[in-house]
Design a protein around this nucleic acid. Structure first.
Lengths: 335, 335
DNA sequence: GCCTGGCACTCCGTGGGTTCGAGTGCCAAT
DNA sequence: ATTGGCACTCGAACCCACGGAGTGCCAGGC
């Protein structure tokens, strides 16, 4: 009885996602094996509407799930569809050719957007937990230094420093050695502390340089990088263009907004679903996000997922997001 | 007389761009200071239509410019609007804070899209004419090398090499010295030749490494990089969604397609306008591009511009594109 | 020869009215 | 609790008529 109601809700969600049209009682009993009569289903639907799981656009129309309805569906009615072997093969072969971290991220975005037919978002692995592999200083002018920071994740950060004072080649070489001695192998936070200590022991002007280096290291800009792909999938919205697509297109360009929308990286393996108004932005109240964390050793370094309409295939999308996160994590383990 | 016809065409283009609606003879004489009668304007319009400059959607509707009409407008009737001082100030202050090449490109994209309210596209300066400033080799595993290539434009390319054979630290240091000796200061093409020659003189396995380095250098992937911004401006299309926005959204993700659409970099200062079907893609026959080259010393290293509907404010857009290219070029000169 | 005023014509967009049908709610019976 | 039946609601689709914007063309004037 309560079971049947849930079955009705599930059927409505599935039909609505498939057809994009409000689903009525008749279509429901025909298309699903509910062994009850029309009237019974109607009663259930009316009850579900009273409880806020369904909504009807107008009196003589079918029912549409509310955010609350989707939430229940995702929480209690979803069994993740395993991916087809073809899909699995696609994922591995797609990732195999990657040549560096940037490439991995870009391939993942493309992969995710193609698998889910939604807009995919992949955050670059955050700096905070990765370690410094090497710091390279290149003097491109007497008073100008290019800093290249190579991290254990394979990520490379670059930054030009204006010194305000010329340095000799030897001074740069010396600085390079000291900086690498202090920072290599450390996580960013430790490296920053070590460099600050180093700067204190140094004579001007190298001390200034070390300080500038610290700035370059902690530059938070680097934490905000994301890759976005599959925006063309927005074209499938068609209806509700102004209310849904416009704010989303805007959000896709504001990476800070996007990151907030995606939320904190959750443990890899746990897929987080945010439905409509559960997210932080009112303008995006008709979009949902499906996200999870990823990173080597299943240690969630960054977030990855998709953004789409509340009306989406949650089981399929969740499975795809989880699978891609898993494979990318594994790939990062190897690298 | 012929002059008046051109004036009529100009007025129609301007009105149509402003109102987005087919413009009729009445609105025309009212809004523009054409000192002739309705009937005269009608005759001119009919003549312009015969010659293919105008088109009327249906008998009792106003006229709309054809691609050919826009072309004539751009070629003969356009006087570039100078930017307002506010706009100029915006450009300089926007670019001033840039900290590296990536940042310059990203700021330019944002700037262009905001100035023109169109989708902006900026190609990263191509490698081909820039010189090698430094090659850094970092051994991240015995048989794995991270190559960081620093170019005179400030661009940094990175690539991981799988050696298939372990190298000692000394071998790497030696290789680094030799490679830098051969490549530093040369343009890419020369550097490649020099490295090939170097590889011939070397014993295995360093020769293999040098060869791999060449591959990394000539990797054409790097020439395809573009930054895109302002996709949210597509939301203003509203009508003609399927025919115009969808293919464009797809093109924006396919950077190769996008680069072909933008065309070759033309000399900085010369703004190229491609209208509708003049471009290489049929699906994009209702979009135009406004592009120009940019680079230090006005040597066009790369292309920059916008993509938008054929119905756009060409004079304003052309002025903005030219101005941004000029300022970015100047900025690159200084750096 | 070019411009102008006038007139008849063509269609598109709009609004009102009607019909059609899907879907509902509720009641009485099992 | 479930079911069959019935009356009801309300949006979508269709039709039609009408008004008006815009046109093409002709005859007359400078």
């Amino acid at each position: 009885m309560q079971d049947r109601r849930l079955a009705v809700l599930r059927a409505i969600v599935e039909d609505y996602v498939a057809t994009e049209e409000p689903v009525g009682s008749k279509a429901l009993v025909e298309r699903h094996g509910l062994n009850v009569s029309l009237a019974t289903v109607r009663n259930d639907m009316a009850a579900l509407e009273d409880e806020g799981y369904l909504h009807q656009p107008h009196t003589s129309a079918g029912r549409v799930p509310t955010d609350k309805g989707y939430r229940l569906f995702v929480d209690r009615l979803t069994t993740l569809k395993p991916l087809s072997t073809a899909e699995r093969r696609a994922i591995t072969s797609f990732l195999e050719g990657a040549i560096d971290l940037d490439d991995v991220v870009q391939r993942s975005v493309r992969l995710l957007s193609q698998l889910t037919r939604q807009v995919a978002v992949v955050q670059y692995p955050t700096l905070s937990r990765s370690t410094v592999r090497h710091v390279e200083l290149v003097q491109i002018a007497p008073d100008r230094l290019l800093v290249v920071l190579i991290l254990s994740t394979g990520r490379v950060e670059q930054r030009i420093l204006e010194l305000g004072h010329p340095l000799t080649e030897d001074a740069v070489a010396d600085l390079r050695n000291q900086v690498n001695g202090a920072a290599t192998g450390e996580i960013i936070a430790t490296a920053v502390t070590a460099l600050r200590a180093l700067a204190d022991t140094m004579a001007w002007p190298t001390a200034v340089v070390a300080t500038l280096l610290v700035d370059a290291l902690v530059d938070h800009r680097s934490d905000e990088r994301v890759a976005v792909g599959g925006a063309a999938n927005l074209a499938r919205y068609g209806d509700s263009f102004d209310s849904a697509v416009r704010p989303l297109l805007e959000a896709l360009e504001e990476h800070v907004v996007l990151l907030r929308l995606m939320g904190e990286a959750t443990a890899s393996g746990t897929v987080t679903v945010r439905i409509g108004a559960e997210g932080p932005y009112e303008e995006l109240s008709s979009t949902s996000t499906v996200t999870t964390g990823y990173g080597p050793q299943d240690d969630a370094l960054a977030t990855l997922g998709i953004v789409g309409p509340t009306r989406m295939d949650y089981p399929g999308t969740m499975a795809a997001v989880r699978a891609v996160a898993r494979y990318v994590s594994r790939f990062l383990d190897e690298a």
